[in-house]
Amino acid sequence: MDRRFTPAPMWLCLPLMITSEAISSRDQRRSFAELCTAPMRYVGARTRFWFQYASQVCTLISYALWRLTFGYRHMRPVTRAVLIKQVLFTAVDALPFTGLIAVLLGASVIAEAELHMSGNPDMVGKLLVIVVIRELGPLVAALILLVRSGTAMVVEMGNMSVGKEIEGLEFAGIDPFEYLVVPRIFGMSVSLVGVALYFLAFSVGSGVVISAILAQSTAHPIELVDMMTRQLGMTELYAFTAKTFIPGLMMAGIVCHEGLNAGPQVTDVPRCATRGTVRAVVGLFVWNAAVSILMYI
């Protein structure tokens, strides 16, 4: 392949040429550097730390996505096995617990709606869509996965890190990122989409059942379902995707990052578990709020 050097266009080099002409002396160079870094002096160390942390997690997630899509034509069977195990543990094993929470949430939302909005069946349907489908469903499903699997993941990775098992993989010629991190990140995000759908089905289902039991004054359950489907549109689909797939990547990215960077002592594992869980919860709520505000705009 002919790989010739292509010079950058002249107009692109012009500012650089002017700058380098203008700052020929050492003092001038120093003051130019100070000018460039001036905004950083107004930013506190804490802000810089969080910015750095977010960029590290984003890099980890982007690298995992790249490895999943363009990096390898096929996923190795060993990695696929880890991914299947991850999905089984994260999604399938969590179904009974998730179902119970979903039923209770759907029932309580519909009971409240029946109590305060009887006589306004349109509002009840709208409330179910806004509260359960757009907001609480994805959020609660994400919290369930974080509490159940995210904590397990961070402790497992932390222990592996302390026990030098990750180092052992690397020394044996196995890429720890491909074997441990990629299936966990992808498994968590895929699981979250599935579990959130399951959660919505159960909470809406329980809402409809409760409404049928209580519906003396408001809409018939079939009417309620009809009202809800009329409220659903592409916005809900975008909101659902943004509130499930991306938080799944983010939560797994944060817990993997914390687990891989656990200190050398066994006592560092609980610390990194707490840190990872708290940061993932904060990240989840920040992202959720940002998506909701964007939807409003």
Binding site: E156, N159, M160, G163, K164, E165, E167, G168, L169, F171, A172
Partner: peptide, 12 residues
């Protein structure tokens, strides 16, 4: 074949 002092086996 490199074997570290800890063995490097995965506990899971």
């Amino acid at each position: 074949g490199y074997v570290p002092a800890t063995g490097g086996l995965l506990s899971n």
